[in-house]
Design a protein around this nucleic acid. Structure first.
Lengths: 299, 299
DNA sequence: GTTCCGCATGAATCGATAG
DNA sequence: ACTATCGATTCATGCGGAA
């Protein structure tokens, strides 16, 4: 099954739109990546959801998401509970438990380590420098393209490979109780290795919209749109989808996920309730599409 | 109130010993730091607790811990759920929720980012490089000595926490280890800032305990004790206790927490069930006590 | 005194096979 | 069907001794 339209953003409430089977048929989406609005105890907070009712509010949405996700698809939920009255809230923990009851498998919790976190000082805690990226699936056998997110091997390797001893060419079995064996020659001349489940993105690689092909070092972005923190959705889009797959963000915000999908030749679908965000997303996506078209014309 | 004895380790089951009010009176402990055995689906696993019964097993222990903790004390629980049948287990999430019902405040979740995690490759996940350090308290107003864990200003990318600093023990080691001596002197001269809630430790300061003692013949660590990863308990001991405070580890293992406490002039109390671990802890603590006594005699 | 090199090891996980 | 065992796979870093 396919969604009614691809490369489109809808303005509206995702809890209603997702339930529309003509727009979102069963098993039609390859990957869902989203950062929903965080809960907030304060009333009237901007698009805020009360933390006491967060789980209750989210479950009907995740129930639609599991319906429209393909069997080998993934759902990445980027979230972090705020402190409230000096304590961490528990709605994320409760949400994981409830989503499992809906049929989701909780495969993994990736840690997004944000080195330049929001400044501040409090008597009872330090600055919060990490967020959860919860990985849910419908089946235990899901699509994962690990080669797409390989990282350069550490500096140790270069020296190591220069001086290979005899033992490096045979399988070495560790003596302790672990069954770890190794054969260093397998890694000879290896350039890239698989990453781990703590995500650290370098700021220099950040992309500036309107200046998509350049890096932050280039200051020409000043005349263009705001900075896009594209790294996070990009990483998961590369890891859990392939070209032409359908990538959904039900809380699109200013369009980050859609832009990341577009840049990697995936089909985007976005939903956003707030008018300002929706317009900004529209503008941003449009700008990237223009740039990409211009670039492809050059070829 | 004070514990019956300080600077002592008990051999036995902490779920029984902690309930003994003569050993552990109400509100007698300043800080609890522990890494309990992680749950394991396999039967007959070494000191393993079945994951289905983990919460049930732990709650009576945490119930005693909240009794014996001082009102301004902290409890640091280092734990990480394993995957089982391809999914992350949920017992840690459930434990947090249940401990809150016991009266604990869940203040914070620190992320311990372990850069050299165990190698391996699987189709559904990457290497696990982080563990949870859950911070619980009895009151929202608790003792926190933030200045004790400031880190040097530096390149964000390379900033890490050095667990140990200017004390006699380090100076002693420095004699035997030129690398360490150099690093410590660099560290002492830098300006310091407050850290955040992602912990990344330098691993240079791991100690081969047997190597600390000056022996005429053999200085090879192979014939001595195991490596001590002291950084983690040390960081929390500095942050949540002051000199002469009572620091408890109900799952002492090979004595890491006690040694860290001792080195920072806190009073340690440890409990360990397994004979091998208990003996090793005893030996390790004894060795460090000897060194510290020798050093103080020199002054 | 400094750099280089060999080696050990770190709370691992999955899937296939055997009982 | 369910459980136990075993093989395969994989990086990064510190320490100690040698150069």
């Amino acid at each position: 099954m396919k969604p009614k339209e691809l490369n489109i953003i809808y303005k509206g409430d995702c809890s209603i739109l997702l339930a529309d089977k003509s727009l979102f048929p069963d098993k039609s989406i390859n990957l869902i990546v989203t950062s929903p609005p965080y809960a907030d105890k304060r009333k009237n907070s901007y698009q805020g959801v009360n933390s006491d009712k967060y789980v209750e509010w989210f479950l009907p949405i995740s129930d639609q998401l599991i319906r429209i996700l393909k069997d080998n698809g993934s759902f990445i939920l980027n979230i972090k509970e705020h402190p409230s009255n000096g304590e961490r809230e528990t709605y994320v923990l409760e949400l994981i438990l409830e989503m499992k009851k809906q049929g989701w498998f909780w495969i993994e919790e990736y840690c997004w380590y944000k080195k330049n976190s929001f400044p501040g000082k409090w008597p009872n805690r330090f600055r919060d420098s990490w967020e959860r990226c919860l990985h849910f699936t419908k089946k235990k056998d899901f699509a994962m393209y690990q080669d797409a997110v390989k990282v350069p091997i550490g500096d140790w390797a270069e020296k190591r490979f220069k001086s290979m001893s005899e033992n490096d060419f045979i399988r070495h079995i560790s003596k302790n109780n672990t069954h770890l064996g190794r054969n260093v020659s397998n890694w000879l001349n290896k350039k890239k290795v698989y990453p781990h489940n703590v995500l650290v993105f370098e700021e220099e690689h950040r992309l500036y919209l309107g200046n998509v092909v350049e890096t932050a070092a280039d200051t020409s972005h000043k005349n263009h749109s705001a900075i896009f923190p594209l790294e996070l959705p990009t990483w998961f889009i590369r890891l859990f989808s392939k070209e032409n797959d359908a990538v959904l963000d039900p809380f699109l915000g200013s369009g980050t996920t859609a832009v990341a999908a577009l840049l990697h030749k995936r089909k985007y679908i976005g939903i956003e309730l707030k008018t300002e965000y929706f317009s900004e997303a529209q503008k941003n996506i449009c700008e990237v599409e223009k740039i990409m078209k211009k670039n492809s014309n050059k070829i």
